[in-house]
């Protein structure tokens, strides 16, 4: 393993952690709203949120590149804010990852919220719990398995992100060169031995994460 590898591993872990934190913050109210509302608009939002699941990452990467570029509306906005352009930066990658992994947070949470049903909320209301109190003392504890699944899947999915990063990253060490991109580089440069370290590491990582998730969910059922 070289310094390049460690830099990429650290960067990937940082990106996935921040993405997960942001997603739980944004995704929880969104999933709650989606679980409790049944209107044309909530259906539209639901479809929008799910889109990154079915779209090729290249579509996302291409439009992000155009939107965040100097001629794009987002690019002009961030320049106006004094942030500069987002592609080739860690912030740009973080935003892209949040969009890319959004369904992996929202879907498990939405299902968990729906499974709770109206009854516990009504009981809480008769005990004079405020909606705020109900959400934190009743809903979130009941939705714990959903929260764990959402966090683990968002983290793991961000670690596995490739196409979007390739299109807006620019391959900068410590900024945008995550494990999957470094691995691609290694394969292209025919450095198969070094490629194996990263590739095998990713295999083991995914297995451990998924196994851990299954075990966690099983323990809960017992």
């Amino acid at each position: 393993m070289t310094t390049d590898d460690w830099v990429a591993i650290w960067l990937t872990a940082k990106l996935a952690t921040l993405t997960t934190v942001l997603l739980l913050g944004l995704g929880t109210p969104l999933a709650w709203w989606l679980a409790r509302t049944d209107s044309f608009w909530s259906r539209c939002v639901g479809a929008l949120v799910t889109m990154p699941l079915v779209l090729p990452p290249t579509v996302l990467g291409f439009y992000l590149l155009l939107l965040m570029g100097s001629q794009g509306p987002v690019g002009q906005f961030t320049t106006w804010l004094g942030l500069g352009l987002l592609p080739f930066t860690f912030t740009g990658l973080l935003i892209a990852s949040v969009i890319y992994s959004l369904p992996f947070t929202v879907q498990p949470l939405q299902q968990a919220f729906r499974a709770i049903g109206a009854r516990p909320l009504e009981v809480a209301a008769t005990l004079r719990a405020s909606p705020y109190d109900t959400f934190f003392s009743v809903v979130l504890p009941l939705a714990r398995p959903g929260l764990i699944t959402a966090a683990v899947m968002s983290f793991a999915h961000t670690v596995g992100e490739f196409g979007v990063v390739l299109m807006i990253g620019g391959n900068i060490p410590g900024q945008t060169r995550v494990i999957s991109v470094l691995l691609y580089d290694r394969v292209e440069a025919l450095e198969y031995t070094q490629a194996h370290y990263l590739a095998a590491g990713m295999l083991v990582f995914s297995f451990v994460v998924l196994l851990g998730l299954h075990l966690l969910n099983r323990e809960r059922r017992v």
């Binding site: 590149l65 965040m68 794009g72 352009l85 620019g170 391959n171 900068i172 691609y184």
Partner: peptide, 21 residues
């Protein structure tokens, strides 16, 4: 300041979209 495309086509794409000056 360097940003790298995986091929010359991507380097061109970065410049033509205005993301790299």
């Amino acid at each position: 300041k360097l940003v790298q495309g995986e091929s010359i086509a991507q380097a061109y794409q970065f410049v033509s979209t205005g993301n790299a000056e």
